[in-house]
Amino acid sequence: MTHRLAGGLLIALGLGYTFLYLPILLLIVFSFNESRLVTVWTGFSTKWYGELLRNERILDAAWLSLIVAACSATLAVAIGTLAGVALARYGRFRLRWLFAGLLAAPLIMPEVITGLSLLLMFVSMDQVVGWPASRGFGTIVVAHATLSTAFVAVIVQARLAGFDRAVEEAAADLGARPATVFWRITLPLIAPALVAGWLLAFTLSLDDVVIASFVAGPGTTTLPLVIFSSVRLGLSPQVNALAAIIVLVVSVLAAVAAWANRGRFA
């Protein structure tokens, strides 16, 4: 089998990547534009970066988003791991279909429905049991964890399915109690899945605007909510600068991850 791609395929690949990356690259280029009119080039400047870094509203929102993302990702990994273990290891437990269905619901449900239903639940809970008295940090964390749990569970389940179950049996056979098997064998073996799941959950939370719009209170504005409201009003050179920073950070992280994983692809 030859690995030389036909010309047509190369062109398709080239055009595809151009389509995916050109808008982002242009966005970054114009973040260095002096003019407020984003798309009219008047000269090189880094002033929008300066303005961005002095914009308290954006900085506060970014900080809040990072904390929400970290908390919800951690929660999602904890619950998603248990759910993934249940699906991969407990066979046909009672009501498995309902368990799997509820777990997968946020994967296929439009975000507006997930957001709406969580908000209506929080409102009703507040009426009935007095919690949550106000919506904000806690409700966003719960909502994002609910969204991400399904993704974590899928990743963990796939990882568990990929390794020899006899390894866990061998540990039990050598005298390890069920909890020891879980901590000493299962968890270390699915650790890469937990890391991947956490990062995915973190990104989903950091990226979400729809669900946060529903469940955030008036005082808690995450970064996507700030971007969304300013973009709705029109173009803003600060958003360009922010985009450039995000792309830079993500690229560096991706490069680091690729470097850390080098040689691990069998």
Partner: peptide
Amino acid sequence: ALVILPFWTSFLIRIYAWMTLLRPTG
């Protein structure tokens, strides 16, 4: 990885990128 990378950047910002391109003054 190049296909996945945009997914890790902000969804909103990718839509915003098209707004800057498509506007009447884009």
